[in-house]
């Protein structure tokens, strides 16, 4: 445990370490931060956002900390790491809002990406969600539920595997499994301070535009699925209380350094039936900006603006950034965000 505390932040692929080191080195230059998955990474251009904000009279300097596949709880851990650098000028932190992920694709389970964030705060939320114990201070799992999970009954086989996986990841992270490389890097003096444009983008603001769009057949299939989904009123997928709790913790950390958390639901075609807040969930606090309504933002959902159901094209991303910045400026002007 002592060793865990003194070890440097691990070298994590996909730009996590790169962006974190870059942000730590330039932390006081930014006042706005976007954090989330590829839906943030490839879709929010800090340059455009800052331009719109400047025009609206509330100039910002923003940084995109989107990482491909970075959802809760990993994003919450990374956010905490960012905040521990104590960025003095940070005012707004946009956090992508999505459900707490308990599933990791089998091929990614053995990567360091699946390990480094597995501290008790994150793991306990995952275990709570997997065992359906709620978020009260005392854990009281239902014995019937546990029996079903252990005996893999009623389709609980995956839940059992996930429980084992997340518990093991916590233990492995706790005892510093696979951290030898970081120590060797430190002693061999490998230069890890070089910024990689692959992750930071040409402008060094963390944004990488993705080119390309859908083929004609993909576009037709997308339009068909979108039409069906919009017409049939799919059941609302409520954000679980565990997710709300995770965001509450994030919001608390952000506020602790004097910044404001803003939760962001991106224009994803797989997310427009999610809703936050049900009877059990406490509101996580902060402002929530949602772009998951195709009727309100039809331009962001037309097939020509999309690369796939999750992501926008470069022009779609630019349009989304502009709309988001305009909305945000309006919120500032209305006094809802200070």
């Amino acid at each position: 445990m002592g060793l865990h505390a003194i070890l440097p932040f691990p070298a994590i692929d996909d730009g996590v370490s790169q962006k974190l080191r870059f942000f730590a080195a330039h932390k006081d230059e930014f006042d706005t931060l976007f954090i989330g998955s590829s839906r943030v990474y490839f879709q929010i251009s800090p340059a455009i956002f800052d331009g719109v904000m400047r025009e609206s009279g509330s100039p910002t300097r923003s940084f995109n900390f989107g990482i491909g596949g970075m959802f809760l709880p990993e994003s919450a851990y990374v956010l905490e790491q960012l905040l521990t650098t104590k960025p003095r000028n940070l005012r707004w932190v946009f956090i992508e809002y999505d459900e707490l992920q308990t599933k990791w694709a089998f091929e990614n389970q053995t990567s360091r990406r699946a390990l480094y964030w597995a501290d008790w705060k994150r793991t306990s939320l995952l275990l709570r969600k997997l065992t359906d114990v709620g978020i009260d201070a005392v854990w009281l799992p239902s014995l019937k539920k546990l029996r079903d999970i252990i005996l893999c009954r009623k389709g609980e086989a995956n839940r059992y595997k996930q429980l084992i996986f997340h518990t093991a990841q916590f233990e492995r992270n706790f005892v510093n499994v696979a951290r030898g490389g970081d120590i060797l890097d430190y002693f061999w003096g490998r230069d890890i301070s070089k910024w990689d444009a692959k992750y930071l983008g040409a402008a060094g603001d963390g944004y990488i535009p993705k080119t390309g769009g859908m083929s004609a057949s993909q576009a037709a299939a997308y339009e068909r699925a979108l039409g069906l989904a919009m017409g049939t009123n799919p059941p609302i997928a409520f954000i679980s209380p565990y997710t709300v709790e995770a965001y509450r913790q994030c919001a608390q950390k952000v506020r602790a350094i004097g910044a404001k958390p803003i939760l962001l639901v991106t224009p994803s075609a797989t997310q427009f039936n999610i809703a936050y807040g049900d009877n059990n969930a406490r509101p996580p606090g902060g402002v929530i900006m949602t772009f998951n309504n195709p009727r309100a933002y039809p331009n962001l959902y037309r097939s020509s603006a999309r690369r796939d159901r999750e992501h926008l094209t470069k022009s779609g991303a630019e349009e989304f950034t502009r709309i988001m910045a305009v909305n945000f400026a309006q919120l500032i002007q209305a006094g809802e965000v200070k």
Binding site: T110, R172, N176, V177, G180
Partner: peptide
């Protein structure tokens, strides 16, 4: 044991 664990690869 502590040192050995550092060199256990993340994959199993």
């Amino acid at each position: 044991v502590a040192v050995v664990l550092l060199f256990v690869p993340p994959h199993y």
